[in-house]
Design a protein around this nucleic acid. Structure first.
Lengths: 95, 95
DNA sequence: TGCGATTACGTATCGCGTAAATATC
DNA sequence: GATATTTACGCGATACGTAATCGCA
């Protein structure tokens, strides 16, 4: 019925998951934030909230080139699935 | 990159999507609310916010037996996919 | 009339922006 | 020393619970 969700919270919003994808695709907080029309601290907050909800670090900070943790790499395809499913559901819902 | 998302908002939380699934599985607001340890108005709010974010009605109110709208039926399998993907991603993330 | 869902409303929490601080190279 | 991210902090918005109301059979 309801899957295990080992320690993870459901308080996550799709905006936070989309932010993580954007972060990876743009290769940095600054660019991704600009792309999402968000301030840098606001964007950083979204990533932090996602990590806190998952109880795990997704990205390695302080490196010139952005790198994901092992958990981040593992989570990325799932994140894409989530957004894809939602987009499909939304388009089916309102035409 | 970022899918179309026709009019739908990303402000949706997974808790709201899970609420929709619980509503269907338990067949009513009252039971589903109790099952999620939420007050009835709180639960009703979650469903309303999801509908507002999608810009579409998911359930037919005022009917003795709970019935979904066509959009609700279409959205349901996507909702399940979303929660499934998140559960998979979360378990992969923190073991 | 009775049960189920919504509305009203107060409160606590959250989310984001501006400004300041910190860290890495 | 410059660029990139986090922290501090304040304000506006959101989410939930309690209480009251509405609606349908």
């Amino acid at each position: 019925m309801t899957p295990p969700l080992t320690g993870a919270r459901l308080s996550v919003s799709l905006a936070e998951i989309a932010a993580f994808i954007a972060l990876v695709e743009h290769g940095g907080f600054t660019v991704a934030a600009r792309e999402l029309h968000l301030s840098q601290p606001g964007f950083s907050g979204r990533i932090s909230r996602l990590e806190r909800a998952l109880g795990v670090r997704l990205v390695d900070r302080g490196v010139r080139r952005l790198t994901l943790t092992a958990e981040g790499r593992a989570f990325l395809p799932r994140a894409r699935q989530i957004i894809e499913s939602y987009a499909a559901g939304a388009s089916v819902a309102n035409g």
